[in-house]
């Protein structure tokens, strides 16, 4: 029965996709309007749609498919500093995200641990964390550029600051809500503080910590596109911005799909890692 369910789900997915493409194709069908009395000299200077008095049209699925294929065929070309393949751009973005994210993890986990162990500190820091958590990455950007004075490091800083909070909060929460019984057992057995932290609290809090990490990587990946659109230079966000300049919807859709796929891959990877540390009571 399970097999047939996933089969049916798969079938439904394909149907939804086909319906979407069909609707898209229908909506972008080229209207063969009466071109008629257009000055050929004028028509040569503008796009096809503009020559007929219309705005340039949204590309059809076939156009976008061709664009995507063009990018996938040659993802790693480098034609100058401002024109590099999507593969190269994704690599730049991933590098930034991982660096900022790992820095955040290195800070958030130990800090969250300490905060979670002490109810006093937990309460004292809570208002700060609550205020800083919802700040948009782009709001940090001018401040970062102004103080750090380096756009590359600023982008990494923004990733860091935005992926810090979910990890911090989840770690602290996980540590604070370890079951009292287990701590009492550890106390009865006179386990040392360090041993207690690593053998009792860490395994107990690990699933919550991993959830925080999973949320964070999602946020980091969301943030990088916005940050790169703002500072430019390299990365998939810059690629989107650069193609926006050129109003090239096909290229933008390609980038959107790639951003989605990479984000999904990151999420799946963290999900797998979370399963490794899960336990059953």
């Amino acid at each position: 029965m399970r097999g047939s369910l996933s089969l049916r789900a798969g079938l439904l997915s394909v149907l939804i996709f086909a319906a979407f493409i069909g609707a898209w194709q229908f909506a972008t069908m080229p209207t063969t309007g009466a071109a008629g009395d257009v000055d050929p000299e004028y028509a040569a200077l503008v796009s096809g749609a503009a020559a007929q008095g219309a705005k340039s049209a949204f590309p059809t699925p076939a156009d976008v498919g061709a664009t995507i294929w063009g990018h996938l065929k040659d993802p790693f070309y480098v034609r100058g500093a401002n024109d590099q393949g999507v593969g190269v751009q994704l690599a730049y973005s991933l590098g930034r995200v991982l660096l900022g994210y790992l820095l955040a993890a290195a800070v958030a986990t130990p800090l969250g641990f300490l905060i979670g162990m002490s109810p006093l500190v937990y309460r004292a820091l809570d208002p700060f964390i609550q205020v800083l958590k919802p700040i948009s990455p782009l709001a940090w950007m001018p401040l970062a550029l102004y103080t750090i004075k380096d756009s590359g490091i600023s982008a990494i800083f923004v990733i860091f600051i935005c992926s810090l909070w979910p990890m911090l909060i989840n770690t602290a929460f996980g540590v604070a809500s370890v079951r009292k019984e287990w701590l009492n057992v550890a106390a009865t057995l006179e386990v040392g503080a360090l041993r207690k932290a690593f053998l009792v609290i860490l395994p107990a809090a690990a699933p919550t910590i991993m959830t925080g990490m999973r949320i964070s990587i999602g946020i980091a990946w969301l943030v990088i596109v916005a940050a790169e659109m703002l500072v430019g230079g390299t990365g998939i966000g810059y690629f989107v911005w650069n193609e926006w300049n050129n109003l090239s919807i096909g290229n933008i859709i390609t980038a959107i799909l790639l951003i989605g796929l990479v984000g999904m891959a990151l999420d799946v990877a963290l999900g797998r890692a979370a399963r490794l540390v899960a336990y059953r009571e």
């Binding site: 401002n82 756009s151 703002l230 911005w241």
Partner: peptide, 10 residues
């Protein structure tokens, strides 16, 4: 190296 930049403030 001429570097394309996103806006005047940047």
């Amino acid at each position: 190296e001429v570097v394309k930049t996103a806006g005047w403030a940047v």
